[in-house]
């Protein structure tokens, strides 16, 4: 049993990491901690992809005269794309959190959900006015 676990330890780490990330996403109330959870969750998948690329006794996939067996470079390339996606997701999420903080004055999900939904009325003429509220002054939104 122990050998079975040790032989494929990177897959076990991938599962554990993924569950840690998933747990954080579900349980944490803080919006930034949720994003950290998402990041761990995605990193686990990166580890999985890198693990499936490994060839027994393989080296780095570089062509030279003494080239022996080498690892499959394709999953590496795929996961580079995956990392880019992950970084952009984090960027969008953090930008959103900044806007949420400006609008609600908090980044704790339970507190935000408690707040009465103050709606900004659609002004018929000057929609510019609303935007100033949204971007500049957070205090106008919070009703506590």
């Amino acid at each position: 049993m122990i050998e079975f676990i040790l032989a494929k330890y990177n897959y076990w780490i991938y599962i554990v990491l993924m569950m840690i990330g998933f747990y954080a996403i579900i349980v944490k109330e803080n919006l930034i901690k949720k994003i950290i959870g998402i990041n761990i969750f995605q990193t686990a998948v990166f580890l999985f992809y890198i693990s499936i690329a490994k060839v027994k006794g393989g080296t780095a996939p570089i062509i030279w005269e003494k080239a022996g067996p080498y690892d499959n470079p394709l999953p590496h390339v795929l996961i580079l794309t995956g990392i880019v996606v992950s970084v952009s997701t984090t960027a969008v999420a953090l930008a959103l959190i900044i806007k949420i903080y400006k609008a609600y004055g908090s980044i704790e999900e339970d507190k935000i959900l408690e707040m009465k939904e103050e709606t900004v009325p659609l002004s018929i003429k000057g929609s510019k006015k609303n935007s100033e509220h949204l971007t500049s002054d957070s205090m106008l939104y919070t009703d506590e």
Binding site: T89, I97, I100, I112, E117, L122
Partner: peptide
């Protein structure tokens, strides 16, 4: 969206969409 709830809607969509 115009309301601040749009931000939370977008955030939840982002979390579930990323999963």
């Amino acid at each position: 969206g115009r309301k601040r709830a749009a931000l939370m809607a977008s955030y939840n969509y982002l979390i579930l969409g990323t999963i």
